[in-house]
Amino acid sequence: MSNTGQGAATARRVRKRPADQAFRGITTGAGVLILVVLAGVAAFLLIEAWPSFVAPAEEIPGEGGLVLYIWPLVFGTLLASVLALVIAAPLAVLIALFITHYAPRKLAQFLGYVVDLLAAVPSIIYGLWGFTVLAPATRGPAEWLHEYLGFVPLFAGPPSTTGRTMFTTALVLAVMILPIVTAVIREAFLQTPKLHEEASLALGATRLEMIRMAVLPFGSSSIISGSMLGLGRALGETMAVAIVLSASGGVTFNLISSGNPATIAANIALEFPESSGVAIDTLIASGLVLFAITLVVNMIARAVINRRTDFSGAS
């Protein structure tokens, strides 16, 4: 093994070509640059946040210390994002299935185009839409949920009169991440091997059964990676959340009341202009936590996908 490796390396060295070498240098440089930027961002966050690590608890906004300040934000961020994903992921799978396996070709192309277009809409637009259209529209349903499902902690209420709730925020985020999640899953479904689809149909599977047998198992790792991509986007979404969510701090699963936890990104955007001194360092510390969360989410996604590659084998 090592012999052949050396042999190949020697052969390559003999056949050096200037253009190849130069291009190789450029691509390597680009790869290194990405790592440098990533490390630089982490270092910047660490250095800038440092004073808040060592500051006495009463100097941190809220006067309860760093952990007490950041924890509700982490909670709010995760709650909004996970909820958005729970809404968006199944929808994305259905849309991708419709586009790839049900819609006539013309309609499928058009829908695919619309989905891609939606991904390009700036988040501020979604924020404005959420604030002016969706939030008021959720009041009725929220009251209904409270009345009939009030015993579920999620709908404990009392319903917010503005509709600018965690529930609305999650819906807006779900709409925002839907295109990217759908696009990733659609690509995977399009590549389902014909021979596995035919294998199930030849057994007398209906189209739905064929999808369960051949398409979904083949696309499962892409469903996960698409979802994680969407989750990453939801975690970091700032403007839309800042506009839509009326946050008052606190940790609660109550989705429809007016007392909502804030999210890290929106909190930074809203507080930053008014802050100074340790308050700024504290905001940056919360940014560091967000950075860490997105890294972890991406790493988990990678791990899940790698674990599944030997199973998805398109043979």
């Binding site: 035919e198 030849a202 199973f311």
Partner: peptide
């Protein structure tokens, strides 16, 4: 009622 076997073996990989 009429089953089929294909040119390339195609067991479900998952």
């Amino acid at each position: 009622h009429v089953g089929m076997v294909f040119q390339r073996p195609n067991p479900f990989p998952t």
